[in-house]
Nucleic acid binder design. Structure first.
Length: 554
RNA sequence: GCCCCAGUAGCUCAGGGGAUAGAGCAACUGCCUUCUAAGCAGUGGGUCGCAGGUUCGAAUCCUGCCUGGGGUACCA
């Protein structure tokens, strides 16, 4: 990428200046800062490094800048290097090089928006992983969008990515789910079976119970109660998972693996990990429970693994699960996407990694602030247990998958957000989603109009007008944006970039006529057709990474 | 109490050591005989929560405080 090449070139220039005796010896800052100036008048790239070097070089920043500029190695993409007060080095991209990028992007092997910086390292992104006790509710939407897009960004950056959904099919919640569903089933058949006090009281459970009664008759009533609850629960789990799969697919989220918590117990993984922890002296018994000695590994309190009432708690599963991720499956890095309401668990997870002899840095948590759903300005309470929820599916149906994804993606995970459903719908005409997609559709429209023009041999060097070059400048930013988003696990940068790229296209469209009836305009037209074709590929790629569609007409 | 996140234009939010702090929406002014006006061009709008500190340089880092949200369970 250009910024990396400039870093290297500036470092080279500094060393050359030192070797020539034009700068004193000092250690180079690492990395050398290279940024995109806010002001267009300051060039395409800039470095303030001379301001930092003033002290160590005991020279004025401007003087240092002069020396570095003088020793800059030639770069094919740099046309000019300026020294600007109070000591910046400004770099200007060469117009000819910019124009040539259009041809480069149109090459069949251009691999647009695909980097190699990940070097094929394996990364697992685990996200959503909601308790399988009912339809996904809208609270999972941000998790889904973040997790899926982070996975796409990492894939684009050259990592080997696996998307995983952890199915909590072993804990106390699923037991209550099973009992609730059985009760609803029995009730549908006229039996007087009560839904557990802390069970699931949503209407969907009654519907599913009635469905089961219709399909299976009294079959489960005739079984021993425990077996019946288990059998009904297994059917219920299938309903939940099928629904989750369909709902997530409706917003373009697909998983590589649905991982069963119960499998950790069935295949001995859990026992193996407990033995490891015992052997390592990380657990002890107290008050009838088994504890994990997290305080010895950086946490502020110890944590129960096996409860007094019997059975492992969720943390026990988490240990076995992450052992499985790192040791059994060997992921280099694992990213867990969690709501901020789980943030208190991070220290014990890090402690667990240490107990297993794993580098805690390999386990990364993306914590996102919770979304408050609003309807007509009123906050909608989201409680799955009362059953009074808005489902993910409802929101997708109401707002549309592209808008849901863009909206939830466009804020950093750290930022709380209100999602006002009425506003999201009402804003349709001014929605940035449409603005961006319209740019793509607009290009397609022009290309359709130009089907009789052969532009395969168009000369991109004719692209030297300001709106054309401004558009190319935006187009070539994609790799840097992907890198930024991948490094920071912050996919919201994509939304801003996509908007700016679309904006450059719309401006270009106003200023530069592409298809013309004038024979004299043919060559310009051919070059511009190349330009918008390349732009279309970049737009489509960034939309693809964001999981959004790229419509050919609107 | 302690821990985490946030506080930037009327609203929603970017920017998280560097140049004159940005975008969308809302407001206002222009632009459709022209490849889609779902668009373009422009104007107004700011003590970057408050107070100290570090630095050549702070919206950005540190400390304290204020406000909002979350956490602080043998629930997940």
């Amino acid at each position: 990428m250009l910024d990396a090449q400039l870093q290297a070139a500036v470092a080279q220039a500094i060393r050359a200046a030192q070797a020539a005796g034009h700068l004193p010896a000092f250690e180079l800052p690492s990395p050398i800062p290279v940024e995109r100036p806010k002001q267009a008048s300051a060039g395409d790239y800039a470095t303030p490094v001379c301001l930092q070097l003033a002290k160590v070089a005991r020279q004025a920043p401007m003087a240092i800048a002069q020396q570095i500029a003088r020793h800059m190695p030639p770069l094919d993409f740099v046309e000019r290097v300026d020294v600007a007060a109070p000591g910046f080095l400004n770099f200007w991209l060469a117009d000819r090089w910019l124009a040539a990028q259009v041809d480069a992007l149109l090459q069949p092997d251009a691999a647009i928006g695909r980097l190699q910086t990940g070097a094929g390292a394996s990364v697992q992104v685990e996200f959503v992983s909601a308790n399988p006790t009912g339809p996904l509710h809208v609270g999972s939407a941000r998790n889904a969008v973040l997790g899926d897009t982070i996975a796409s960004v990492l894939d684009a950056a050259g990592y080997a990515v696996q998307r995983e959904y952890y199915v909590n099919d072993a804990g106390s919640r699923i037991r209550l789910f099973n009992e609730t569903l059985y009760a609803r089933y029995a009730q549908a058949l006229g039996q007087d079976v009560a839904v557990p006090e802390d069970g699931y009281h949503g209407a969907y459970m009654a519907e599913w119970g009635a469905d089961l009664a219709r399909e299976h008759g009294t079959a489960f009533l005739e079984m021993p109660n425990a077996a019946a609850i288990g059998a009904v629960g297994a059917l219920g789990l299938q309903l939940v998972l099928d629904g989750a799969r369909a709902d997530l697919a409706a917003m373009a989220v697909q998983y590589d693996c649905w991982f069963s918590e119960q499998s950790l117990y069935d295949n001995g993984q859990y026992d193996k990990v407990m033995q490891l922890l015992h052997a390592g002296g990380h657990v002890y018994d107290q008050d009838g429970a088994t504890w994990f000695r997290a305080t010895a590994l950086g946490d502020t309190k110890d944590e129960v693994i096996v409860r007094t009432v019997g059975g492992p708690g969720y943390f026990a599963s988490d240990i076995a699960y992450h052992y499985n991720k790192f040791v059994e499956r060997g992921f280099d890095r694992v990213i867990d996407v969690w709501g901020a309401d789980h943030q208190g668990h991070v220290p014990r997870m890090k402690a667990m990694m240490r107990a297993l002899g794993l580098d805690p840095e390999r386990l990364v948590f993306v914590l996102y602030q919770l979304v408050t759903l609003k309807r007509a300005g009123e906050i909608v309470r989201l409680s799955k247990r009362t059953g009074d929820t808005i489902t993910l599916r409802e929101v997708i149906d109401e707002v549309g998958p592209d808008a849901v994804r863009y909206f939830l993606l466009s804020r950093s995970a750290d930022s709380q957000m209100d999602f006002d459903l009425d506003l999201a719908k009402k804003q349709t005409d001014d929605n940035p989603v449409f603005y961006i997609q319209y740019a793509h559709a607009r290009i397609c429209s022009i290309l359709r109009r130009a089907t009789d023009v052969n532009w395969a041999d168009g000369d991109v060097q004719l692209l030297n007008a300001e709106p054309e070059l401004a558009l190319i400048r935006q187009m070539i930013r994609l790799p840097e944006v992907i890198q930024l988003a991948a490094d920071n696990l912050a996919p919201h940068h994509l939304t801003y970039y996509a908007y700016e790229l679309a904006s450059a296209l719309h401006s270009f469209y106003r200023d530069c006529r592409v298809v013309s009836a004038e024979p004299a305009d043919l060559e310009t037209s051919q070059a511009r057709l190349k330009l918008i074709s390349a732009c279309r590929l970049v737009l489509a790629r960034v939309l693809e990474i964001m999981g959004m569609s790229a419509p050919e007409q609107m």
